[in-house]
Design a protein around this nucleic acid. Structure first.
Lengths: 143, 143
DNA sequence: TATAAAGCCTATAAACTAAGTAGGGTATAG
DNA sequence: CTATACCCTACTTAGTTTATAGGCTTTATA
């Protein structure tokens, strides 16, 4: 399951993507509209900023805004940022690779093979799911 | 990520599937061969028994053995048993459905759509991954 | 240049979960 | 009838998640 952090991040990002041309948005505004605890959201947005997805402006008239284009922000990246590896086994991850402790021989491990497939198809779908794409889907679903 | 419980369960099941015709296997034997803490494995095997996948025989000459055919035991079932829902969001699960708290409108939720796709393809792969299948793959990989 | 606005930073706490341990109870083959 | 081996309940320990508290720093603007 996704952590709340990741879920909140996605909601905040979509919120910001929809208002991409309206200048900085207050943490408080996002928190209220998206039902996210204010202080918790603060930490989340900071992480997204450190990762280069968002930028912020301090002081009066400040707030957060998207730095990357909505086309360039996908769910795989967001999930990795907050929840770590997408794969279900450490031995089939890309960035977080680790050997499975109890595994006797990785080469002939039939379990590995299955979960590698799962990882690959999952990453494919999540990479295609950009902010633009999600907003577009929501638009179509309303019809 | 899979819990250790689920991983241990898979290893134990494969172990038992390979020895399906040799009568009951001792917990101690599986624990030793698969590097699983004995007491922990005890609890895991009991869960698998309660779920109808394994059966056991008490007393001298006892142990655990597969009740279901290796064709009928797949990774989706094992994962659900130990780690709960396979989906990454509670609102796209089959058996464990729950509304996402922060979700304003499930009908028009673009996030839901993405994670429903992920769930469906994942379940498809995991259902196809039966014990027989995994053992077969391992056999082929050795070549 | 004071001052309010708004993000930044560190520490802490409460609740939950995962992983494993302890110790005895119960059934059964020989 | 006793050694064997699974069954059951409770507990512990460590780590993670989900926050909250409180003050610090930057900045627009009156």
């Amino acid at each position: 399951m996704l952590s709340k952090k990741a879920k909140y991040a996605i909601h905040a990002l979509i919120h910001l993507a929809k208002l991409a041309d309206d200048g900085p948005v207050l943490i408080s505004t996002i928190a209220e509209k998206e039902n996210i605890p204010h202080k918790f959201l603060e930490a989340i947005l900071l992480d997204l900023k450190k990762d280069g997805i968002l930028a912020s402006k301090k002081g009066k008239g400040g707030g957060y805004y998207l730095l990357k284009h909505p086309d360039e922000v996908n769910m795989a990246d967001v999930m990795r940022l907050f929840d770590g590896a997408i794969a279900l086994l450490p031995c089939v991850t890309y960035k977080y690779y680790e050997r499975c402790e109890e595994c006797k021989d990785e080469e002939t491990c039939g379990i590995r093979d299955v979960f590698l497939q799962v990882r690959n198809t999952t990453v494919e779908i999540l990479k295609a799911a950009t902010l633009s794409q999600i907003i577009k889907i929501e638009g179509n679903l309303i019809l």
